[in-house]
Structures are given as structure tokens and as C-alpha cells.
Design a binder for these strands. Sequence first.
DNA 1: AATGTTTATGCAAACCTTTGCATAAAAACA
DNA 2: TGTTTTTATGCAAAGGTTTGCATAAACATT
Lengths: 339, 339
Amino acid sequence: MKKARTTITDIARELNISPSTVSRALNNHPAISKKTRDAVIELAKTLNYQPNLLALNLLRKRTNTIGIIVPEITSSFFSSVINGIQDLLSPLGVNMMISQSNESMEEEKSILRSFASIRVDGFLISPSSETKNFDHLKILTDNNIPLVIFDRDCEGLEVDKVFVDEYSGAFQAVEYLVKTGCRRIAHIAGPLSLSTARHRLKAYKDALALHHVPVKEEYIVESSGFTPEHGIKPTQKLLALPSPPDAVFAINDGVAIGAMYVIKKAGLVIPDEISVVGFDDDPHSCYFSPSLSTVWQPTYELGMLSARILMKRINSNNDLSDIRVEELYPELIVRGSSK
Amino acid sequence: MKKARTTITDIARELNISPSTVSRALNNHPAISKKTRDAVIELAKTLNYQPNLLALNLLRKRTNTIGIIVPEITSSFFSSVINGIQDLLSPLGVNMMISQSNESMEEEKSILRSFASIRVDGFLISPSSETKNFDHLKILTDNNIPLVIFDRDCEGLEVDKVFVDEYSGAFQAVEYLVKTGCRRIAHIAGPLSLSTARHRLKAYKDALALHHVPVKEEYIVESSGFTPEHGIKPTQKLLALPSPPDAVFAINDGVAIGAMYVIKKAGLVIPDEISVVGFDDDPHSCYFSPSLSTVWQPTYELGMLSARILMKRINSNNDLSDIRVEELYPELIVRGSSK
DNA sequence: AATGTTTATGCAAACCTTTGCATAAAAACA
DNA sequence: TGTTTTTATGCAAAGGTTTGCATAAACATT
């Protein structure tokens, strides 16, 4: 038998006063006598009264909850971003509804619908790799629901966005490889439906071109994901080339770790015979042998900034006059896997 | 200027019918004429009507949302558990509010209060390492709010619980080390406020005792956390002993990775001179060199089962007659870091 | 004593939706 | 035509909270 939770009316009935008085007493309204206030507060405590935010939210048309949709939660990248988001939101008393799209556009849409019905105050979304059509996101802005896109771009959608300057990060990495004498530099790209993967690929090509290193198509392979497993096959393909690469720039640390594994298995010495550079600075990367050179991304800051912009938008009543597009800067970290 | 979202009353006014009729039309109530129903549904679509679940939840006293509190989200362990939780909940149309306690009891309490006010239907909690007093959890059960504890125990609290049999996992690991000839087996324990850490320590001692290997206090060191960084100092301490260990069993893979790093830096060969075994089977562990032997835990299943039990409890109106305590089985995975 | 002022409280509406009950209109039947 | 049945719709309450306005009681002022 489920006993109902204590409400403001329960307290009122017990004390023979009206619910309004109870409400005011609990909210420190000045026009309440000390006697009444004390009595109310005490009874509330003994009855373990907890305000029903559903009712209040309905009244205020505000839930103090924001919806977060990420492709996956298990990657160190996104979990670290979420960390940053929580650290900004928590002191503000704002809750997070989190869900993963598993890189599926259908799931993304369905989560979106669900969050919208719950009336979250705003959205923080990093779109799935399948998401090419932004109608579902457009509906949010059409309905004046604040939305901030982070990390992965939705080109053409006019909302606040926060990115890492992937181009710069990748450019630094490749340029550095060239400068340390590598000439046959390969790139294991990510799924090219992602803006991030495209930017890194472009930077790779541009950096090579700038330094007059020919761009060869056979040195560019695409991985279908971001785990070490996804790095195995592409690396095997690269090593099997007539003229195998003397450096590999991988889309992220996960794939780079897979690459190192294959390279070492093949009896090649890193970095003497082949350099490896990743992206993300996964917390484990510096403990590999050799430790993995990589491009650090300010993930925590990315989360914080995205959340801060979203909250500002929410509190300014979603006035869309000044859309912000912010870029954070990544940093090359040279370790043992490169010369 | 924020335009209000479409409500059922807007549709009713527009169509000159009552809100009840609109509600019934949208819910396929039989006593509505086809003509009215069609008109309603069409208008709802063009106005992009989305039901306000706040109102409905208030009426139903049910939010279809559950609250999840974990110590941290960035560890592969907990993010994988959350993965399992979502995969069970999602098809049921249940949402997740997720928050991290950051191993702080105060934060845990405050998140709890917040989730309770939001009226989540139930809780899935893995307590922080600081949590020794369970009053705040007791309040939940006192108020008939379903709660499932997972992974870390709250001894004395009578609620549903789902664990991994840590003892068995650790015992397997240590016994295996003994059987491969190690005699000076060290243990880097986790924070001993955690039931999991205590169980593993006990298994370590018991396994040694069973095989008549003396338990030496200097071989037991405590780490204050679970990252590679937390493994550095304890390992240095172990290696500095007059008679350094020939095997290290670490509280988890993170710490084991830190240990391997220190050991290799010291010029010792793994596993010839010293074996290392971790716990958790972090996705990266098999790509280290040598690859890390570890104890795999069914994290995904842990999440699924916990969520399943919670949903059952919620749907059975929290009838507490049959508290369940479930245990899942871990498995030793032998790789290159041990003989 | 009469009036004005302050203090403490209550009433009722609003937020949005569902649903039991009542009822009007239409259809079917005698 | 009058009565019963069916069909389609509306009314009002409920869920818990806040808040503008009204008001009763207590106090202060002349």
C-alpha cells in the first residue's frame, strides 16, 4: 500500500491554516507571524515534506532541467564534456537528463521528442554521425526552445554552437610530423559524415600541401568508429602498401592505440620506423609504451562553455538576436610515439 | 518574445470544442466522431502540439523518469553500467536523470533531495566512498520510493541490491598468481570505505592463506582512487621494499596501468620479474604491452539487471515483501602481464 | 469612541491534462 | 408521436503550488 507523500495541504489541514499560509511560511514570506512560520517549518520537517516540483514547474513553465543528447557516453571525450556541464549546472540547481543516441538519427529524434514533452528548459546536443537532416532540431528553434550544438556541427542550422578548432589541432599534428622528417604520412580518418572528421582530414591535406608533401589517396583510410578495434583493419591496410607510411595520424586516441598495437605486432619500432599521433588525449594515452603523442582537447571547458551559453539563452528568454559560435583551442602534446 | 507552446486548450478554442474532446480525440477515445477526431489531429499537427507531461505527471503521480546517482561518470565501469541501464529503460519510454556525486556524501544527499523533489519514480544508486551513514537513503524507503543499490553495498540497508561477486573475482586472480609461482604478491587496495575494496582485500588474504603464502602487511598498500595516477605512489612504495613483490594485484585496471608504468620505468620486466593483474577489464587494457591481465566484470548486465529490478519494484507499487540481492559473476582474463 | 494603519491570513485563479458523470442531440423503435 | 437507445460532447474536479487581491483582527492615533 503506497502512502501518499506529504503535501502542503496536509500540513495546512493539520495546523488548521490555509495552504497559502503554509506556502508563504515555507518561502519566508514577510507577512507571516513567527509563530505560524515556526510551527509550519517544524511540522514540515517531521513529516519530511518535499515540495512537489511537478506542480511548481507546471505553474512556472520551467523545469530547471536541461536535456543532453550525446552519441555515446562511454567515450572519455563525451563523459568528460558531461563532467564540465554538470559542474556548471549543479551550483545553479539545474538537473540533467542525459541520453545517448548511439550514433542513430532515429534514436536522436525519439529522445528529442521525449525530452521536449518533459519540457526541459533547453537542449545540449552533439548530433549522431547519421544526422544529416536537421528538421527535428529546427522544430526546437521554431518553438523557441533553446538549443546549443557542441563539438559536431550541423551546417546551416542557426543556433549557438561551441566547437574545438579541429582544423588547427590536426594541422599542428601533421605539420609537426612533417617537421620531424616524416614524408609518407598516413591519416586514419573518422566517419566523414562528421564535421570533425572532415575538418581534420582537410587540415591533414592542407598541412601536407603547405610543406610540399604530396597527398596520396592510398594513405587516407576511413575508420568506422573510435575504439582501438576500429583502428586495426585500417592500419593493416596501410602496412600492406608497397610503400608503407612512416607516420600515422589517427582520428582519435582510441584508433591510434589500435594502430600502435598492429604496428608493434608487425615488428616495427615506434617512433623510429613509424610515428603515431592521436587526438583527444585520453587519460590512458600517456601510459602506453611508447606514450602516445596526441592533440589535447579542452573537453571539460567545452562542456562548461556550452552549458553556460545555454543557461544564458534560457535566462534571456531565448532572445535569438546574437547567435554565438565559439571555438576552443586544442594543443599538440608530443610524447614518445613520435620523433 | 517567447510564444507559449501549444496546449490542448488552444486547439479546443480554435475548433470551438471543449478541451476534453480534444484530449479524447488525441487519445483515440471511441466516443469521438471521426470528423472531430480528424480535425483535431490535423490541427494538432500543424500547431506542432506536444503534450505537456508536467501536467500529466502531476495527475498520474508518476514521471516515467528514474534518478541515477553514480560516484563518477568518466570511469569506463560506470559509463558502461549506464549503458546497460539505458538499453533497458529506453524501450520502456523511461528517462534517466543522471548525476555524479564525485565521491562526496554531501553532493549525494543534495542530488537525492533534488531528484526526490522532481518526483522521479525510483532511484538507482551506487554510493560515494564517503557515504557511511545511510539516513538519506533510509528516507527514500520510509517514503516508499523504490531504490536499488548497485555495485557498492550499504550494509544494513534493506533494499534491492545488485552486485558483482568481487570476492570471487579477486580470489581467482590471486589464486592464479600463486599457481604461476608468485610468492611475494602485493595488493594495491582501493579506498577501504568501499565494500568492493574490502571484499577484494579479504579475498586476497584468504587466497594467500589457503595456499599457505604468508600475508605480509607491507605488501598491502591503499590507493586513494582509481586512475593510473593513483597507482604511481603505491607502486613506488612497493618497489622500494627490501624484498619487493614478484606480483601486484591492483584494485582496478586504472591503478594497474599506473603500476605497470612505474615497474617498466624501474627497468623490471613484466611478467618475467613481476606479474600484474588488474580489475574491470577496461576497453584499453588489452592494448597495453604487455596486455593487462584482469578480472572482467559484467558491467552492462549489472546496469540492465539493476534497472530491471527497479522497474519491477516501481510497477508492483513498491511492495517490499521480497527484497532481492543479486550477484553477477566476474571472470579472470589472463593476458600478457602475468605468467 | 471613532478612525486610520498595520499585520496576518484566506480565497480563488492559474498552470495543463484526464476522466466520471451528466446531458443534448440524433437515431431507432414502438 | 412519444419513448427508448445510442452517440457525441461538455462540465467540473483533481493533482500541488504560488500569488494578487480582499479581509479580518489587532493595534495606534486623535
